[in-house]
Design a binder for these strands. Sequence first.
DNA 1: AACACGTCCTGAGCGC
DNA 2: TGCGCTCAGGACGTGT
Length: 275
Amino acid sequence: MPELPEVETVRRALQPHLTGRRILHVECHAETLRRPLDLVGRPELMGARVLELRRRAKYMLAELDSGFALLLHLGMTGRCHVDGPDVAPRPHDRVSWSLDDGRIWRLEDARKFGLAELHRLPEPGADPAILSDLGPEPLSPDFGAGYLREVCRGRRLAIKALLMDGKAVAGIGNIYASEACFRARIRPATPAGRISLARLQRLAGAVREVLVEAIDAGGTTISDFAAPDGSEGSFRTRLDVYGRDGEPCDRCREGGIRRLVIAGRSTFDCPRCQR
DNA sequence: AACACGTCCTGAGCGC
DNA sequence: TGCGCTCAGGACGTGT
C-alpha cells in the first residue's frame, strides 16, 4: 500500500515522537518479515538515541547516535504506532521498541512484506550502502525531464513500469504511476524510449504534482493504509483513474476508464485522452 | 476465489 | 557460442 506520499505521511507523524528518544528495549514477535529479523540484543540499538527520522524512496531511516540506522519498510500492509505503556500488542505487531518516555513504538505488518533492519551509516546523514541502487527522489532537483530522457533512452519497457522501477525513480508505486501517466496524457503502455522530450517534461511535472498533492492529503487509503494516529489518507477521493475502471473519464467526459495489466500489475487509463 | 498499494529472483530473449 | 543487459512473470504471508 504505502508509496512515497504514504511513507512521508507516516514519517511526519512519527518523527516528533522518536527524535531525541532512547531505545531501551526491543522485542520481535515474528521470526522474519521480508528477511529474517535480527534486532534483539544488538548493541548498536540498545540504549541508542534517535537523532532523526528521514525518508528515502519508500524506506524510513531512524538515524541513531551509534552510527547505525534502523531501516524500515512498510511493505504492502505495514503500519507504525506509538502506544502508551498499557496498550497490548495487536495480532500483527511484529516489532516493539520501548522508548525512554515510557511509550512503545510498534511496527504492525499483517503480510510480513515489510522490513526492519540495522545498517551502518557511512557518515552521519548519509544513506546506508543497501540503498545505493535507488534512483533520484522525484521531488528533488535531480529529477526532471532531462533525467527521464536519460533513463528512458533505448528502453522498450512500458513507461509506467519504468516509473515504478526504484532504480529509475525512487518511491513511485502502482497508484501514482497510473495517476501521473493520466495527468501527463501518456498511455502507460508506451515504450519509455519512444516518448518525446516535450512529453517527458509533462510527465516529470505530473509526477511531482501528484506526489505533492497526495502528501498534502495525507496519502491514499484504499484498504489498509493509516497514519500512526489512525487517520486515513484522503487522496483516494482525488484519484483520476486508479481503481475506477468502467467509470467515465472526468477530463474528456467521453472515454471510459479501463483496467489493463502492465508488467503484472493493474493499470488504469483513459484510452481516449491518453495517447 | 481472485486479487491486493512492494520487492526480489529467475529465466527467456535480445544485441553485440 | 558466450556475455551482459533488459524485461515479464512468479514468489513471498495474509486478509478481504
